[in-house]
Amino acid sequence: MLVLVLCVTGIEDAVADKSARGVAAARHGVVPHTAVRPHIVPRSVWAVGGEANSTARTPPPPHYDDKVLAVFVHHTDSPNDYDCADAPRIIRYLAAGQTGARDWDDIGYNFLVDRCGTIYEGRAGGVDRPVTGAHTLGFNHRTAGIAALGTFTAGAAVPRAMTDAIAALTAWKLGLAGIDPRTTVRLTSSNSLSRYTAGTTAELPALAAHGDAYMTTCPGAALKALLPEMRERAARLQGRK
């Protein structure tokens, strides 16, 4: 049985080039609103043996955007009472469903977070890069998708470790483009099956619910209700007032 180190609460030291950017910005009187990168478990932990699953496939070369301007939060509609040691198995199951039954080329979410606050790399392409995902129809470009493992409809308990991890991941990912998690951004729909016809430019929260852009109740009423708190937490992690 795979043994994992779970319930990660710390964050890694900022990388050297981030510090260099901060020094350069300070010389010009600009305060860089970035955040340190949280610990992210690589996809090799759940995609055992590369893509070892009877229905999985080796993903094609990833597609990239120029930057990530917004983050969409999802839930996976899976049980909430799992042992966190089983999170890799659950992610493999989700990936198999998306690449098998749905015939997608890879898991759609860029990241997944379990109830212990452990962050997992999802879609291949590099966590530091603006990988184009398949998580929010019409708005996959210039965004990242974060999936909370579980079902968070009205009345469900949302673990604090999970929301803290989502906030930390959001702060870092949006900070790479200098985006305040509390603001709104302008995104252009690429699919008329979203809430906006193709070609429409919509103003959406930088930290948004899946349902803000697509006709769905995802990520569930309980998790959606905590988004304002997560936006504030992410902004503080970026050093914003």
Rank of each mutant, 00 (worst) to 15 (best):
H33L: 14
Y64G: 04
G150N: 07
R231H: 07
D212A: 12
H210K: 10
N140Q: 06
P219I: 02
L226C: 03
A16G: 08
R43S: 14
H28G: 11
L237G: 10
P130C: 01
Q98Y: 03
A96W: 07
G239F: 12
A26K: 10
A171Y: 09
L223W: 01
I179R: 01
I90E: 08
V3N: 06
P130S: 02
G133I: 01
I107Q: 00
T118V: 15
D103R: 14
G125T: 04
D106K: 00
R129H: 09
V15L: 12
V36H: 12
R195H: 10
Y214A: 04
K173L: 04
L193Y: 02
A221L: 01
V73E: 09
G117E: 05
F111K: 04
A144M: 03
D13L: 11
V23Q: 06
P32C: 06
G199M: 11
G199S: 12
A206E: 07
A148V: 00
E232V: 13
L223A: 03
E229K: 15
Y109K: 03
V5M: 02
R129F: 04
H39W: 10
G150W: 08
P159H: 08
G117R: 13
D180I: 08
A24K: 14
M1K: 08
D180E: 03
A235Y: 15
L169D: 11
S54F: 05
D83N: 14
S19E: 10
N110T: 05
H28A: 14
C116Q: 06
V113Y: 08
A14E: 12
G211A: 13
A144V: 11
S44P: 03
T99Y: 04
Q98A: 00
R21V: 05
D105R: 02
C84M: 09
D212H: 14
V73A: 07
R27K: 13
V31R: 15
L204M: 06
T183V: 07
A56V: 13
A95Q: 03
Y64E: 02
V68N: 08
D65K: 05
L112V: 12
C116I: 06
A47Y: 03
A101V: 13
K67Q: 15
G126I: 00
G220W: 00
A177S: 15
H63D: 09
L4E: 07
A56L: 15
A208W: 04
G199H: 13
L94C: 01
V31K: 15
E51P: 11
H39C: 04
W172A: 06
T136S: 10
R233P: 03
Y214Q: 03
T197G: 05
G122F: 05
E232C: 08
A171I: 12
C7E: 12
Y109Q: 11
A134Q: 01
A208F: 05
A177V: 09
P42K: 02
I11W: 13
F111I: 02
G29R: 11
T188H: 03
D81A: 13
A154H: 01
G126R: 05
A165P: 08
R195N: 10
Q98S: 02
P62Q: 05
G22K: 14
T9F: 07
G178H: 11
I90W: 12
T58F: 09
T217E: 07
R57W: 01
T188Y: 04
A14M: 14
G49K: 06
A202V: 09
A209F: 01
R43Y: 10
G10C: 08
A168S: 15
L204S: 02
V131N: 00
G150D: 06
G22F: 08
N53T: 08
N80W: 04
T217S: 12
P38H: 07
